[in-house]
Structure formats: structure tokens, C-alpha cells
Amino acid sequence: MPVMEYIDAIRLAMKEEMERDETVFVLGEDVGTKGGVFTTTKGLMEQFGEMRAMDTPLSESAIAGVAIGAAMYGMKPIAEMQYSDFMFPATNQIISEAAKIRYRSNNDWTCPVVIRAPIGGGIFGGLYHSQCPESVFFGTPGLKIIAPYSAYDAKGLLKAAVRDPDPVIFFENKKCYKLITEDVPLDDYIVPIGVANVLREGTDITVISYSLPLHFAMQAAEELAKENISAHILDLRTIQPLDRDAILEAAKKTGKVLIIHEDNKTGGVGAEVSAIIAEEMLFDLDAPIMRLCGPDVPAMPISPPMERFFMLNKDKVKEAMRNLALY
């Protein structure tokens, strides 16, 4: 089983799906000749031609809208938003159109589109190359939203997204692209959408998260084990629909829950996860539900100390985990 980077796993998923099904194609800015600004689509144009790895005009609403139209016809488009920060011009197409096509047509028309968008900071991207816009789309019924942390999941979930009959937003973490390296099978496997995954079994505290912060949580858990703090870690993987059963099971395991995400705290995914736990098992808890999130500022500044202040890291996560354990 080859070791590969998270970004390679995403590329491999697209390549395999394009080989499997000729209606699958990728469109976006710089995805063709250049192979993507991050190299995510590198080699696809050479293999599949410039129609199936299509360089588009700089217009996100058209990238999403044209993909939606093609999907309604029966194609399986993967629309790339170069940065999730630039996704907002396409929001009307995603929320008013893609999310509602099945519902508004009473199940007559469908929209099996995938929209890929890199999220997250820590790359000196400043306000507009660092955002985590999950909460803008989260809570829009009709959309599925995936945010993988591992390279294995990135491949399996993207392949599941391409085959899904409904619109899926695939939030890939750009800091994970090169940071996360692991064994990824070359065979045709799928990771099901809507199913969370226990990354680490533990007995003292439960950490629920998705995407990059899990990297810090796993490191912190390793170190906290030496302090006899045992952390149970759940990777949501899919943030819509949330895996309620897995969330409740993980929370029950320890009775102490910390929810972590880089998106800012107010109105984030963590608020919903917290509400689910509070609704179902408040009296089984041994501590208040805690959240560690990005601060409620408009976006991440580029200046290094400011970026460091905004970003989560192993030490911040470890401290929050220890505080909860000691509660």
C-alpha cells in the first residue's frame, strides 16, 4: 500500500472516478494546463483532455451554475473553487439551486454535483486565502458537506461524493495537503458519507472535531497519555448530515466533551454538535460541553504573530483537553 500525501489522495480519487465513468469531469480556474494552483488536478488534462479537465473563465457562479446544469442533464461534474474564500459568488447557485433542485421538483430533477473547495489557514494566506466557510453552508438542507482529515478518507469520501445522487460540498484542508501523509490503498474503495470515525479510543475525555484540528488533537492525546489522561477522539468526516449516533456514543463514552474547529465559534458546526448532545444526554455529562474554535473575527490576518494567534495548534488543543480532563 503506497504512502501518499492528502493532496495525492484527492487527485487519485478524481483520476479513478474519471477512468471509471466518462461523465465525470473537473472544471475550475487553472485546473487544466497548470494542474491547479495547489497541483490537485495535475496530470488530469494530459490524461483526459481539456474538456474533462477544463480551465474555466474566472467566474465562480458560472463554474457552479454550469456544473449544476450539466449535473441535471446527467453528467457528474466536480467543480473546483480555487479557494473557499472565493466561493461566495457561487453561494446563490449552491444554496438556492443545487440544494433545492430535488426538493422543488418533487424528486423529478436531481443535481449530483460535487463542489471542491480548499479551506483553512496557517499558510500566510491572509483574510481571503484562509477562511473556513463551513457555517455558511451548514444547516442548508439538501446539501451534503464533507471535510476529511485523513488522506485515506479524502480519497474514499471524494469517490463517494462523485457517486452520490445529491450535491456534495467537499471541503479539503489546504494545510493538510502536504502535512498528512499515510498509507492509501490503490484499490477502488469508498468511505460512506454521513458516517463518523473513531480515531482513538479513550476513557477520560471525548474530542469531537473534523479536518486539520484532529491532527493537533491526535498529537496532544499522545502526550496527554503520559499524564494518564485518556482521550477518545471522533472524526466527524461528514459535517452534514451529522452522524448523531456516533456523536452521542462518543460523548457517552467519557461524559466530557470538547468540540474543536478552526471555523469561528459563533454559529459553527460545534454549536450544533453541542446542542445534539445537550438535547439527548445532558444529565449523563460530567462537565459542561466545551468548544475550542477560531476567534469571532472576520478572518485570519497575514501577519505571522496574528496568524499564530488565530490558528489552533497542538499546545492550544492540549491545554483545552487537559482543562476538560481536570474539570
Binding site: S61, G65, V66, A67, I68, G69, A70, M72, Q93
Partner: peptide, 11 residues
Amino acid sequence: TQVPHAVGFAL
């Protein structure tokens, strides 16, 4: 919003 969709069908 239907204009990009029409373009998608044509594509």
C-alpha cells in the same frame, strides 16, 4: 440562475 444551467446543458 437558469442561464448558467442552460450553459451546463449545452456543455
